[in-house]
């Protein structure tokens, strides 16, 4: 197209025309992404909003039922059960994981011999897909012959049934999460190295102990990244699915949600409604409620973050 324009007898184009042409050329180049975004993100996004007001079983045409889905959800005990399990992961498991990654990052920031080896070592679990690591952990946590219990027994400690005991399933997930904390640690590590060294030097000269240096320099310096990690962790935890799906034995197992429904998470309930009960409308409404909850939580975190996030600068 552009060559043709060049071959044409010279016709002065105004800067405005040129600007427009540049815009459309750029748009044409970006079009594969734009089309994909419209078709696979925007359309489903609003499509699910529409379906959330319908009764839709995937096969027959959706039937408009107004707010009935939302009303039903609010009086659905399974919704609350799923929500409380999910909140546990978001507000207990996720912060524990965050603190662990931070500690790992601090360790990996030490200047000791072979530190690159340790860094690699801690990052390796992050490369392993959740599915594989979940299966791996079911072996490790096997009550009888799992490595964890063998160790616990050998030092005379109580050996819980982990993934089979409703009281221990969520702590098991936390442990699995800790194992993968290298991924978060890597981001913290990058941020740690971005903190100017002279702050530490000045603090040392003033006689600040290591914990005061962490509290007064490291943490404020990390706070934007901490906020980012916290938000991403929160959003991720609200959508937790794979671990429970695998540990519960999959869609056709009849044991979805784990022992005594202790791993019955929001996304599991959503999946169940959509693909097992064929209640797409109900599932869409669930998805939108989750979306609103996540947006609200994010806003709250962002609003309060002004108090503890330090963006540097003078």
């Amino acid at each position: 197209m552009s060559t043709r324009t060049l071959d044409r007898p010279v016709k002065q184009s105004t800067p405005r025309q040129r600007k427009r042409r540049i815009f459309w050329t750029g748009a044409a180049f970006a079009s594969p992404w734009i089309i994909g975004f419209l078709a696979f993100t925007v359309y489903p996004f609003f499509g699910s909003l529409y379906y959330s007001f319908t009764s839709y079983d995937l096969f027959s045409a959706p039937k408009w039922i107004g707010l009935a889905n939302y009303r039903a959800i609010l009086s659905d005990p399974s919704f609350y059960k799923a929500l409380s399990n999910t909140f546990y992961m978001a507000f207990i498991a996720m912060p524990i994981g965050l603190v662990a990654s931070l500690l790992v990052a601090l360790l990996l920031n030490l200047k000791v011999r072979g530190i690159t080896f340790y860094r690699t070592l801690y990052y390796v679990p992050a490369v392993i897909p959740i599915v594989a690591s979940a299966i791996l952990w079911t072996w490790l946590l096997n009550p009888d012959y799992g490595l964890v219990n063998i160790v616990l027994r050998s030092v005379g400690l109580n050996d819980p049934a982990w993934l089979l005991d409703p009281n221990y399933t969520k702590p098991s997930l936390i442990m699995m999460g800790l194992w993968g904390s290298g991924a978060g640690a890597l981001i913290f590590l990058a941020a740690l190295q971005g903190i100017p060294q002279q702050y530490y030097e000045a603090a040392s000269i003033d006689g600040a102990a290591w914990y005061r240096r962490i509290w007064h320099i490291t943490l404020p310096g990390l706070s934007p990244i901490l906020l980012f990690q916290f938000l991403m962790g929160l959003i991720g935890a609200m959508q937790i699915f794979t671990e429970s799906f695998i540990l519960g034995g999959g869609a056709n197992s009849g044991t979805m949600g784990g022992p005594d429904q202790s791993l019955f998470f929001y996304a599991i309930y959503l999946y169940q409604n959509a693909f097992i009960y064929l209640k797409m409308g109900y599932a869409s409404a669930l998805a939108w409620i989750l979306f609103v909850i996540v947006v609200l939580l994010t806003l709250v975190v962002l609003k309060t973050s002004a108090r503890w996030v330090y963006y540097g600068g003078d």
């Binding site: 489903p44 499509g47 839709y56 799906f245 999946y271």
Partner: peptide, 16 residues
């Protein structure tokens, strides 16, 4: 399954 769950609600929609 995991892939479906995220935007599952909409998948069926495109071709109903």
């Amino acid at each position: 399954g995991g892939g479906n769950s995220g935007n599952g609600a909409s998948e069926g929609g495109s071709a109903s």
